[in-house]
Design a protein around this nucleic acid. Structure first.
Lengths: 228, 228
DNA sequence: AACGCGGGTGATCGGGCGATAGATAGGCGG
DNA sequence: CCGCCTATCTATCGCCCGATCACCCGCGTT
């Protein structure tokens, strides 16, 4: 006797492809890219060979996952927000990080980001270069302006200033790592924590930046630089 | 004619086991735990079945890697260092983080830590609970003392204080992530960066802690607290 | 010199998993 | 209502990889 199979649902090629792509994101960010195509198919309620009608091989599926996750997450309004000088700089920066945290502190983003990094993709470095060029530079520029310091055009942004930005970025991103990679409990209202981190950063940064902008007041960091 | 094989080197069981264990750490932290036993054997210059003479299966090998990495990294002197009240608290804390960073910012530690987290091991959470209970509490205790605030026995450590510690931890750990997971360039002298992060933290923390210790001065974070 | 213990190897098995090929059936155009 | 297109399925291939087994051989002991 034939066992009653769940009825073979027939979708348009477009719809099915989108379903597979979305399912692949959910699956691979949980199981890692070592996850098996049979398992993915089972979760989608389809047979495994059907995946190969829409994607030539597993690698293409993974590429699609990358594109799905990396591309659809960048909000161009972030840059506008940071540039909008009708609002105080501090307010803009805090608003930005509140928003950025909301976009980035998700199970999918955090895990895919880690998996792709560990896999040796250069997607991470490309993405983070974007963050540095589009966000960090803007924040530093606006902060310098706020505190009456020379603009980046006059005095280029120093390594230590970027490190400060990295530290803020890290303290926010790590909340997601704690939750979705280590499986630790995190505070109920992440929003408040992010806001505190951003404001604490803004309170602490001028002193450090001022110090970094006066390199003369500081011992040269390494001796053997025999230059005229 | 027999091809000259690399001479079958015969070691004592102990020596061989240690060699395999060390090689497994190096191999798996690079390739991930999906790395193949044949590849590991090749790097060790032995045949793959020999692995199974010393370890019953791949999982046991991985367990050994965990033990190798997780256990040998905790320095009990850290706690003594933080407790040593003959030195100023700030100095102790900066010294600790300089040392801790040196221990933790290594290719092996960072990657194994991430891999084991993504694999769903609870080793990470166990380790980090240790860090919280042994380090964070100590740092907060000493800082409170330094700034004339009530001791943890009087006023328990609040969530926001722990979040501050997490932020510092994150900003240091993330340096390793940037380098060994994302493959990004990091500053030449990490020591200086870590020291700056620690001192900036120490400069910024009293204000935030003071605020956190006066919950009355702050709006209750959730409405349903009907108060006069 | 003979022996045997134990470290090391070659050959191979069995299951798992990516990928393919040919059969089947849903649904639209006529 | 027929016929075709194509989305989906069943069956299977071939390789990879963890694991096993039988055998080899160098060294210490007697």
């Amino acid at each position: 006797m034939r066992v009653k199979q769940p009825p073979r649902t027939r979708l348009s090629a477009d719809a099915r492809e989108r379903l597979i792509a979305r399912g692949a994101v959910a699956f691979f960010c949980e199981a890692g890219f070592g996850g098996q195509t049979r398992e993915l198919a089972k979760r989608l309620g389809i047979t495994q060979p059907l995946l190969y009608r829409y994607f030539p091989n597993k690698e293409a599926l993974i590429d699609r996952v990358y594109r799905e996750v990396y591309l659809n997450r960048w909000d161009p309004r972030w840059e506008e927000l940071l540039d909008d000088r009708s609002r105080p700089a501090r307010e803009r920066i805090v608003a930005f990080y509140r928003d950025y945290a909301k976009a980035v502190l998700s199970y999918e983003w955090i895990r895919i980001f880690m998996f792709s990094g560990l896999r040796g993709m250069n997607l991470n470095s490309r993405y983070l270069t974007l963050v540095r060029d589009r966000i960090y530079t803007r924040v530093i520029r606006e902060l310098r302006r706020e505190y009456g310091m020379p603009s980046p055009a006059e005095v280029p942004i120093g390594e230590m200033e970027f490190e400060l930005m990295w530290a803020l970025h890290a303290s926010i991103f790590y909340i997601g790592i704690r939750k979705w990679i280590y499986g630790l409990e995190i505070p109920e209202n992440v929003d408040e924590v992010v806001e505190n981190l951003a404001t604490a950063f803004l309170d602490g940064v001028p002193a450090v930046m001022a110090k970094a902008l006066k390199p003369a007041a500081k011992a040269p960091r390494r001796a053997p630089r025999p230059r005229g």
